[in-house]
Write a protein that binds this DNA or RNA. Structure first.
Lengths: 341, 341
DNA sequence: CGTTTTTGTTGACTCGAGTAGATGCCGCTG
DNA sequence: CAGCGGCATCTACTCGAGTCAACAAAAACG
């Protein structure tokens, strides 16, 4: 039987290192941090050796207490199993890690109550900043964080408020271009599948779609409103199919919804893009492997995440909040009629 | 112009509360924690009022330092944008939150180096436990955590080591049942699409598939090895299509791979399940909305997560590690031949 | 050689909360 | 009324690391 009595956990502290190296604890700190004061090279060497000999690792919690900074960022998403938020979380985590920050993840499960709980929880934990993908489109939530001096960045908002940092895609223009592309395949009757948006403002995607229709002098298009997930898209698809005179193309506000919509179409035996052309929004990996592969508007997730991290850790407490809008790329695959085999 | 000079951050501490309530700081602690000593009801009331009046929130970092526990759990996944790991992360986060814990997420991006970095980072941050979905199938990584007294739970391992807590699905039996189900539709030639597994042991899914074939007295089946993602499945699909004599059914080791495999089949104009029947593993949401909807083996993600949290926070440091294996449910949809419209 | 400057090191205080041990107060009992 | 027990409260130390003021020793300067 192997000796597993490891539990004798000999927590090594700065003091132990100091003792072994024959110096004071202050010097140890100076060495570890390249600290505010110089240390003679010979002493540095002694300390370094003591550190490796004992396997000392500084206690991050103590540091956090003293410095008032945990080097932790929080991220709140409505649903991590949504591929778009997952890729966003991935990108944020990566950008944060590069700067030496860790990321707390909070999944709101589409509930405002849970979202609030996460936010207040993160605040209590003294995170240095929060990325918020809210389930709603206003920001009373942010005030609490703001009051506690926690920098917050709104992600994926369809309207850009000025009182707080916000980062998101250029919804209107890229949506317009996407719809215009459908038109370039000869479609005149282009419907919109639009996720529910709270608040009284128009979603940028809807606005872009309207602009495009107006621009091509088309009649007013149909709108199918549904939840922002696969089931919502499926449901919208069923309603679409029930129509007697169906639009020939659809612009859908997320890849996830598009996948659900496609399933409804397939069930009914309709072909994409021959019977109905489809264009969606987000550009998640899922869009590439659906059938047919989805033409979509790809958000520059990586860049947005990096900008967000910079906004949080590289910004003074007194600088005014900024809104940063990112251009998207039209990814043309089969579902719109391009790229035929 | 509104006065946004909020930055005067009046961090309220226990001391302020004590002063306002006219008591000592100890009493404040006792009230906040239902602390180890009693406090007279009248005094409690005074303290409570002072707390709300000042908007006091205890500093979690300080508490963590004193108590040696951060009330944070870490979770490391190979890729959060994989729908299965996303749902796992969601479940873990929810279970953790219910117990008052927050969850740090680390995405390894399929790299062992990054995984190690996360693990050591989490250890430095004094997390109370770690959920590890490793990119490899052995566990040298765990020793460091173990040495620092951090309880670790291995998730989604295809082999169950005894030296450390492990939680996972019952791979062998459920895979066998899945393959037997394909056989019950009349298939005799059933291939396997198997994700790459490091280590010298057989993946439980592969073992179950072999068992099923043996049980039905079938000839040895074909294996297509590929990476554990959509692209891998697509690639396997292309190789499958290149065969002159194709198996009539396929068992695929994850939903993600299955989605890629389906795309390859569609491209070639093959029908599922008529030309090729498909059965996959995991039971993520994605499987429900692919075309055709995937028959799959659903892992009880919620239960596994809850068991994991219990294993971490409800287990003494000296109790021996346990392996917990969970039964899976066969979800029959269209891709295997069931549920025809 | 005496004085200033520089450099290296240290002791001691700080962050904010948990809690053991000491202290004081009340009422009850003998 | 002394003595005791029980309760409420406070004082003071602790967790581990950051850093400043103070000091000592060495270097630079006149």
């Amino acid at each position: 039987m192997p000796d597993l009595s490891a539990s004798a956990r000999p927590v090594v502290t700065r003091k132990d290192v100091a003792r072994l190296a024959g110096v004071s604890t202050a010097v140890v700190s100076y060495v570890v941090n390249g600290g505010p004061k110089n240390v003679a090279p010979a002493t540095q060497e002694k300390v370094r050796q003591a550190i490796t000999a004992l396997g000392y690792r500084p206690n991050v919690t103590a540091r956090a207490l003293k410095m008032g900074s945990s080097r932790i960022l929080g991220m709140v998403v409505p649903k991590i199993s949504s591929p778009f938020f997952a890729s966003l979380a991935q990108a944020v985590e990566q950008a944060a890690e590069q700067e030496g920050y860790a990321m707390l993840l909070g999944d709101s499960r589409d509930s405002l109550t849970v979202e609030r709980r996460h936010l207040s929880n993160f605040a209590d934990r003294q995170v240095d900043g929060v990325f918020l993908c809210s389930v709603v489109n206003h920001r009373p939530e942010v005030s609490e964080l703001d009051g506690r001096g926690i920098r917050t960045v709104l992600l994926n908002f369809s309207e850009y408020p000025l009182e707080v940092d916000a980062i998101g895609p250029e919804f209107v223009g890229s949506s317009r271009r996407a719809v215009e592309h459908l038109a370039s395949h000869g479609h005149r009757d282009i419907a919109l599948v639009q996720g529910f948006v709270t608040g009284n403002t128009l979603d940028g995607r809807e606005f872009g779609w309207r602009e495009a229709l107006k621009g091509m002098g088309a009649s007013e298009g149909r709108i199918f409103r549904c939840s922002f997930d696969r089931a919502g898209g499926y449901d919208a698809g069923r309603r679409f199919l029930a129509l007697t005179e169906r639009p020939t193309a659809v612009f859908i506000t997320s890849d996830e919804q598009a996948v659900g919509f496609l399933r409804a179409l397939h069930e009914a035996g309709l072909r994409v893009p021959e019977d109905v052309a489809v264009m969606s929004f987000d550009g998640s990996e899922e869009s590439e492997f659906s059938w047919p592969p989805l033409s979509t508007v790809r958000q520059p997730v990586q860049q947005m995440a990096e900008a967000g991290v910079r906004a949080i850790i590289g910004t003074g407490r007194d600088e005014p909040p900024r809104t940063q809008v990112f251009d998207c790329e039209l990814v043309l695959r089969r579902s719109c009629g391009c790229d035929e085999p």
